[in-house]
Amino acid sequence: MAGMVPDQTPATSGDGYRRVVGPLLLPTWAMIGIFLVVPVALMAVYSFLTKEFRGGVDWQFSLAAYDQFFLNRGLFGDEPPVMEWTYITIFWRSIWQAAVATALCLAIGFPTAWFIATRPANTRGIWLFLITIPYWVNLLIRTVSLKFLIRDNGPLNEALMGAGLIDGPLPLVNTNLAVQLGLFYSYLPFMVLPVYAAVERYNFAYSEAAADLYASRWVTLREIVLPIVKPGIVAGCLLVFIPSLGAFLAPDLLGGAKTFMIGSLIDEQFKGSLGNWPFGAAVSMILMTLVMIALLVYARSTAKGGAA
């Protein structure tokens, strides 16, 4: 075969091309290596090492971290193993909190993005600018400020009591709602910006065509607008959900013991001598695996939907 046909490899994949482009790709490979492969690999390796009591690790292979996550062997580790629910409960709560925060972001972010995208073109930049201004302030400061706003003698409760709407202060701090609000406030722009980009590209002639064909406004939104801007909504939801899942500032500052989330769990493992690095790494690996599986399932379902 090779002797019969003259070489017809296109110039873009020939040796010459590789000689030129190969070195030019080095910075990209270096970036991916240093900032993606090495950290994830380190985390994966650490999760299989033995805990060192002053923090850090002993370079000795161990499954103890995963064992601790999934199995309960009693206080002294000598009982027959049973399923350990503590950490799974924390995972489940985190997923729920992140999902509520994402839903809140979508409920507020979609109308906001729609509003901005339907302003005259020369004023849209100003609205987007206003959306991003609060995010110049450090996340910690913003989260603490939110706590001051919603605490028992904070402005929100005092205003509500002053208006005679409630008799005593609403206990907001240290509740799930407070954490959800905190996450919502932390990540709202990550919803607004991609949804805005999608709505801005939306051709409003489609809405006119739908109305012309007897669709009401709600039906037009459901059948025409949402399916067309869906990529922006999905992007926004991922950008809010994933960091919310691993967040620790909002749950630490606004929540209590009952609102403990994965982020805080991981955070604790790397603090001082009480930490457990292999366990922290294992929890991170499990979290990352879950997110990856969810993304793959979603990607496959949309790929099938698009082909049908």
């Binding site: 006119e208 065509a209 064909l213 067309i228």
Partner: peptide, 12 residues
């Protein structure tokens, strides 16, 4: 009913 200038066919 209207036939639009650029048709406005629903792309999805």
């Amino acid at each position: 009913n209207t036939v639009f200038q650029n048709y406005a066919l629903f792309p999805h």
